[in-house]
Design a protein around this nucleic acid. Structure first.
Lengths: 127, 127
DNA sequence: CGGAATCCCTACAGATACTG
DNA sequence: CAGTATCTGTAGGGATTCCG
């Protein structure tokens, strides 16, 4: 289970201005952002599984565990039969999501330019 | 060379609000952010290699290529002997870096809480 | 000086099957 | 319902060597 004990010792020994990279690493998983967006309101496991198109049970579990472990998502178990588990964004996770707004805006404004740059690059390389 | 032709066909077919994830994927490489920060001013290849502690020639080349290809970094070759190549942030790349400021702030303010959450989690799991 | 080519290892992630 | 267990593929990244 590589994702579970991913607490990288190397990280701790790294350079000064690392906090941004540290966060980017945590947030860069394939499903992390999608899940964070999905749990703005309380969601159940199966509910998430259905709303996140193409995710496997495994990845949903692992990603949720990491988010919970980092205190970005709160997991609540209702000891009923059948079991019921709810996930919801923590205040810290909410702030994180908010702090990504400018980046999202940049992404929306520049994705086209980015694609254009890539096409131009391909042409240049072909020459 | 997997990093070179990483233009993921799957990305294009994906869901609606993908631009953020698209950007996160591009920026999430181990060296990407460090390099972006390093080329705020014009830097030569060897200069970068020395300032980025622990990077291999290979990863420096590959990451710079991707950044150049996406139009985030401009590469200038001076046809002298010995050869001289300079890399510098493009305007678009500069805006990208700026849009990351809130996230950086969040990271600095919350890294401690994040570590705390992880410790608490370990304790809870042990029980 | 500024790369490109090659080999290799590991972590992320998918598919499938089983369980309290 | 909400997971866990196992097997496997693949791409990111490190180390090393060679080249214009």
């Amino acid at each position: 289970m590589s994702l579970r004990d991913a607490a990288p010792l190397t990280r701790l020994v790294r350079d000064e201005a690392a906090p941004l990279e540290e966060i980017l690493d945590r947030v860069s998983g394939k499903w992390t952002m999608r899940i964070l967006s999905a749990v703005r309101g309380p969601r159940r496991f199966t509910e998430l599984e259905r709303s996140l198109d193409g995710i496997s049970r495994r990845m949903l579990t692992l990603t949720l565990r990491n988010l919970e472990r980092d205190g970005l998502v709160v997991r609540t178990v209702y000891p009923t039969v059948p079991p019921k588990v709810e996930y919801v964004l923590s205040p810290m996770g909410c702030e994180l999501l908010d702090s990504l707004a400018p980046l999202t805006a940049w992404a929306e404004h520049n994705l086209a330019s980015l694609e254009a740059a890539r096409s131009a690059y391909r042409v240049r390389v072909a020459a």
